[in-house]
Amino acid sequence: MQGKLAELIKTHAGAGRVDWIGVRPERLAEVLPVSSARIVKDGLEGDHGRSGKRAVTLLQAEHLPAIAALAHRGAVTAELLRRNLVVSGINLTALRNHRFRMGEAELEITTPCAPCSRMEAALGPGGYNAMRGHGGWCAQVVSPGLVSIGDMVERV
């Protein structure tokens, strides 16, 4: 049974895709969408940055409609949610504690990216709770490189 579960954990329906990239020049600055960014050891170049296990933040594109519905909004944009990368087509939760490649970079998802109190202001009353369970993931950089919108996301 152990071997079967291990095989299931390694199997994905296909590669994912980088849909959106954003950087914040300073901690509370607005998020600036970009078409590509160099991922360095401490995160995306041009981003105010974090480091280590929280160097890069990722959000599942498929969660955007769920967040909008739970916040009672028509739509929610990636900029509003302040993550670095939005990915579609591959389950980020299934990549936790595994290495994956996007563009030239290799990352490893390390911990959930919990919503902060700023989501209440960004999404309105209940915004914090609308994000719970949908806030995305933090990742550490294993190997730096360029990432661009449209790049594939695959487990290594």
Rank of each mutant, 00 (worst) to 15 (best):
G145I: 02
N91F: 00
T93K: 05
R118E: 13
R24K: 13
P33H: 09
V156T: 14
S35H: 11
A121M: 13
L8N: 00
G124L: 09
N97K: 03
M119Y: 10
E62T: 04
H63E: 15
P112V: 10
L32T: 12
L58M: 14
A29W: 07
R24M: 14
V18A: 05
E45Y: 00
V86C: 09
N84F: 15
N97R: 01
R101Y: 00
H134Y: 15
V86M: 09
E79A: 15
M119G: 02
A6V: 04
D19E: 15
C116T: 09
L64H: 10
L8K: 00
R101N: 01
L123G: 08
T110V: 05
L123F: 12
R118G: 10
I9R: 04
R132D: 02
E79L: 11
T77E: 12
G89D: 01
E108N: 01
L44G: 08
P125N: 13
A55K: 07
A75C: 12
A71P: 08
S143F: 12
P125W: 09
R96D: 00
E154T: 03
R155P: 02
R24G: 08
G3H: 04
A105E: 06
A6Q: 02
A66H: 13
A122T: 12
Q2S: 05
A105Y: 03
L28E: 13
A105V: 07
A130L: 10
R155G: 00
S88V: 07
D151K: 07
N91E: 05
R27H: 09
V147D: 09
C113D: 15
H12G: 00
L64S: 05
G136S: 05
R82N: 08
A61S: 15
H48C: 12
A114S: 06
Q60M: 10
L146Q: 14
V87C: 04
R24P: 06
S148H: 13
L64N: 05
V156Y: 10
T93M: 03
G127H: 09
A105F: 04
R155E: 00
R50P: 03
I149A: 06
R50A: 11
P144I: 02
Q2C: 02
P25Q: 12
G52R: 05
I90F: 02
L146T: 11
R155D: 00
E45P: 03
L70H: 12
A13M: 02
V141Q: 06
A29M: 08
T77W: 06
N91G: 01
A69L: 15
C113L: 15
L8F: 00
A114M: 06
A37P: 11
L28C: 08
S51D: 10
V147K: 10
A130S: 10
A121R: 12
D19P: 07
G46W: 15
I67N: 14
I109G: 10
A121F: 13
D19N: 14
H72M: 13
T93R: 05
